[in-house]
Design a protein around this nucleic acid. Sequence first.
DNA 1: TTACACATGTAACACGTTACATGATTTT
DNA 2: AAAATCATGTAACGTGTTACATGTGTAA
Lengths: 194, 194
Amino acid sequence: MSLRHALIGLLAEHPASGWDLSKRFAEVLGNVWPAGHPQIYGELRKLREDGLIAVDSEGPRGRTTYRVTPAGLAEARRWLTSGSVDHTIRLESVLRSVFFWLMTPQELAGHLDREAAYFHGLAELYRELGAAKDRGDFGRSPQTESLRTAAEAGARVAQALGGWADWAKSAPHTGPGPAVIAAGPAAAEPGEPG
Amino acid sequence: MSLRHALIGLLAEHPASGWDLSKRFAEVLGNVWPAGHPQIYGELRKLREDGLIAVDSEGPRGRTTYRVTPAGLAEARRWLTSGSVDHTIRLESVLRSVFFWLMTPQELAGHLDREAAYFHGLAELYRELGAAKDRGDFGRSPQTESLRTAAEAGARVAQALGGWADWAKSAPHTGPGPAVIAAGPAAAEPGEPG
DNA sequence: TTACACATGTAACACGTTACATGATTTT
DNA sequence: AAAATCATGTAACGTGTTACATGTGTAA
């Protein structure tokens, strides 16, 4: 149910259309909670039906902006203060690591180099974003303070995963036996099982 | 498609039943990639239809164990070496931080204390798991080396988030204006909008 | 003989993604 | 006049969760 509350939260800043909200997810929030426009339009309809948001204005070519209702604001605050955070994490990078033993040392080294480069680059991006907010490049408001905090999380998590990839390069890695390699790296022709 | 490949990967270690695989997800893999038993049984059926796994044995009370086929092993290795990792991350803890400005300083402090405690505890758990693997408590094999690497990732990410929560406690936080508070912390009675 | 753990599955629903469809406004 | 961007939505599909249903083997 996080999308629901994220939408209310964004509308609490100022009214916005489904299109606006899609863009904010694509540019900022999508890094921790992806959502495409079909999902957003669907959820906006439900939120409107439930009275948590209301139509604020209708503009050219069907543009409809929404604003939070008092009930919506209360619901967002209830979500934030209720204490039951869903700590479920999905990290394909780490899931893969459970199966590193199926890769040859060469394959693994290449993989870890790419992962390290990706995460270090991402960390740098978030660090720069945080520094820009500290400089006040986007003005100062309670909202930008919160985004500053979120950027810090991104920087720290990306840094942690980049450091992990570096560390993994020097960790012991025995690699798969010949029988596994014999299955081939890509081809799916079942030969003689050995 | 990660569940599919994770199941093949687990079966590459040794044959197992849907029940066995469900338990391994619940105990280990579920921390980075949750999967309930209905999803696992469904995916096993598809994998069997696609010839990537095969029935290995049938035991008492309908227990069916599966093993990988050569085609399945090749597919798992193709997935691991293909280079296109899905870096999508969903972190409700960080998503919430974007809306910290809707909480009072008191509410936020309480929230961050709980988050810090949770993540520091989790980090400690993974660190201990890593140390146990380093001591060889679970024997030594390519597979346990890989699990050691995965535990390191868990420890580092949890540590990063715990440190972030500590940091956020001392970061500036203006908090919401009176109009937001007036909406109440939980009640959903729409009063006079102001 | 009662209870518990084993073991498998279906059904219904919720959430999320991709592809498709439509049309208006603005820019080139 | 053509192309790009704005703006909204539906349809189909895939993934993931919760609840339900069923029956067996083992231990108390």
